[in-house]
Nucleic acid binder design. Structure first.
Length: 367
DNA sequence: TAGCCGTGGGT
DNA sequence: TACCCAAGGCT
């Protein structure tokens, strides 16, 4: 690893901030330094691209212009606004923190990173980003961009997925932060990491800090950052049931409050590919796995819908979902976590997985 | 402390 | 197709 002297640090800061002043991105959350805006954007941007976030960010603020209004929202409404962004605990934690700030702290934010980290959903990165951008605290905001940028500039060969990485990079970056512009410094690093020093096909030669880029100078940019490979997602098979009542409504079921897609709504999912199963088998499995009791005499038809089904890949699971329609002669009662609603209902928070299943059903259902 | 937790886009 | 990547946090 390379260590810079004070004069080099000073020149680096000037090169970075001069470039940022002239070429920094004009993004919706950079219009001011309101901690609500900074915090909301940083949470949305976790593991999520800028172009994906912008429309969600604008819609969110139109819905809840202030943190006090967010604090008064229902969790159902918050999840619905978030639906499609993924990592849904981020949305639940946004609501929790909004309520802590509004109801327990009189609308006052903690102004340093340690205080911010106490809030739900705020870890080292978001704490550093909000503390530096909204409150001008001289702390780093170490995200994937910072890992990539400083591993190249300083030839840091610590595996960025290792438990040691956070401290190594924190110690390396902290002395480089200018006391007068910590927020701009951190945001400049993000812009650098998404442009000249991006992960794929970087343009190190034209970077404003090319003169400070040791990996570029030595022709080893493609070796940084050092990052251990991750595991393949585990394959799982499910069958989604379209339980169709005579009035055209189907059964929607809310998932458990913890785990994958927590609290979101899908059609009843049976484990395994049950395309060839009989009506009694499907009814039995539906009772065993979901507590939905159907009288076999109510089943008019059992029809597989489409062929191979839908593939949906999560970070750690790969789902193959086949679809079966059970046409019923009546509208039987449901447990508390399930509801009869039309195929086209717009009121529930649906994960992308269910949106794919619904679209697949509409393409393949019997005429 | 690894494993869990989404999604869309690019190659 | 099967990867990888994108402003991580929680347990």
């Amino acid at each position: 690893m390379i260590h810079w002297d004070d004069a080099t640090i000073d020149r680096f800061q000037r090169a970075l901030l001069t470039w940022y002043d002239a070429h920094g991105r004009d993004l919706p959350w950079r219009r001011d330094h309101d901690p609500y805006h900074v915090w909301l954007s940083e949470v949305m941007l976790q593991q999520t691209g800028v172009s994906t976030v912008i429309p969600y960010y604008e819609k969110w603020l139109a819905h809840w212009p202030t943190i006090a209004e967010l604090a008064a929202a229902d969790e159902d409404a918050v999840l619905k606004e978030w639906a499609g962004l993924g990592y849904y605990s981020r949305a639940r934690n946004l609501l929790k923190t909004a309520r802590v700030i509004t109801n327990e702290r009189g609308g006052q934010w903690p102004q340093d990173a340690a205080g911010l980290k106490q809030l739900p959903g705020i870890g080292d990165y978001v704490a550093g980003a909000v503390a530096s951008i909204a409150f001008s605290q001289p702390v780093p905001a170490i995200d994937g961009n910072a890992y990539r940028v400083f591993s190249r500039l300083l030839l840091i060969d610590t595996d960025i997925r290792s438990s040691a990485a956070k401290k190594v990079f924190n110690d390396a970056i902290t002395p480089l932060i200018p006391a007068d512009r910590p927020g701009d410094f951190n945001q400049a690093v993000m812009d650098l990491g998404s442009s000249y020093m991006r992960a794929k096909d970087p343009d190190s030669a034209h970077s404003p800090v090319a003169a400070f880029d040791a990996a570029y100078q030595q022709g080893v940019t493609d070796q940084y950052p050092v990052k251990a490979p991750k595991k393949k997602p585990v394959a799982k098979a499910y069958t989604a049931l379209a339980l169709l009542a005579p009035d055209g409504q189907v059964v929607w079921q809310q998932r458990p409050p913890r785990g994958l897609l927590a609290d979101l709504w899908t059609w009843p999912l049976l484990t395994g590919d049950q395309q060839g199963a009989s009506a009694p088998e499907l009814i039995q499995q539906l009772a065993d796995e979901h507590g939905i009791i159907l009288d076999p005499a109510l089943v008019l038809r059992v029809q597989p819908v489409g062929g191979n089904g839908v593939v949906h890949v999560f970070t750690h699971q790969r789902w193959t979902i086949t679809v079966v329609q059970l046409t019923l002669a009546d509208v039987p009662p449901l447990p508390a976590n399930a509801r009869w609603l039309p195929l086209t209902q717009q009121e529930l928070a649906l994960p992308t997985m269910q949106r794919k299943v619904s679209a697949y059903y509409n393409r393949n259902k019997a005429e």
